Amino acid sequence: MKKKVYITIAILALVVIVAIGKAFISALSGMGNPTGGRGPDYPYFYTTQPTVVKKIIVPKGTKLTYEEHFFKKGHQNNMMNEEKLTSIKLPEGKTIDWGGVPVFMILKFYNPEMQGYTVYPDFNQLKNHKKTKFSQLWQNCNNELGVLIKNADDWTFSTKNISDITDCGVNYQRYYKENKEQQQFLDELYKELKKVK
Results as ranks from 00 to 15, higher is better:
L85G: 08
P91V: 15
A19N: 02
P43C: 10
L186K: 08
K4P: 01
I162R: 05
I96D: 07
G116M: 13
L12H: 05
N111Q: 08
N78F: 05
M105Y: 07
K60I: 15
G93M: 03
G74R: 05
Q76S: 09
T51W: 03
Y176Q: 08
K133A: 00
Y172M: 12
E113R: 14
S87P: 06
I20T: 06
L189I: 15
I9K: 05
K180F: 08
E113Q: 11
S158K: 01
F104E: 11
Y120C: 04
S29Q: 15
E68S: 10
Q183M: 04
Y44I: 14
L186D: 13
I17H: 01
P50W: 15
K63A: 06
Y46K: 06
K131R: 08
I106Y: 06
F24S: 07
E178H: 13
T132G: 00
Q136E: 13
G61D: 06
Q184P: 01
N128K: 09
K194R: 13
Y42G: 09
T95H: 02
Q136A: 09
N77A: 11
I25A: 14
N151K: 15
D164Q: 13
R38A: 15
Y110Q: 04
L145D: 02
G36Q: 02
L145G: 02
F134H: 02
Q125G: 04
N140C: 01
W98D: 03
E92P: 02
I17M: 03
C168M: 06
K194P: 06
G37L: 10
P102G: 00
K72M: 11
R38E: 15
I57T: 15
V101S: 00
N33H: 11
G74K: 04
K84T: 01
N171Q: 10
G93Y: 07
T118D: 12
Y46E: 09
F109P: 02
T62N: 11
C141L: 14
D97N: 13
K133E: 00
F70T: 14
L189N: 05
I57P: 09
H129Q: 12
Q125S: 07
G116D: 12
F134V: 02
M79E: 12
N142A: 06
D164K: 12
V18P: 05
V170E: 10
T62V: 09
W155I: 05
Q184G: 06
E188H: 04
H129A: 11
F45E: 08
F123Q: 03
I20E: 06
V53T: 07
K89M: 12
D167C: 14
T166D: 11
I165K: 06
Y176P: 02
K22E: 07
Y120T: 01
L12I: 07
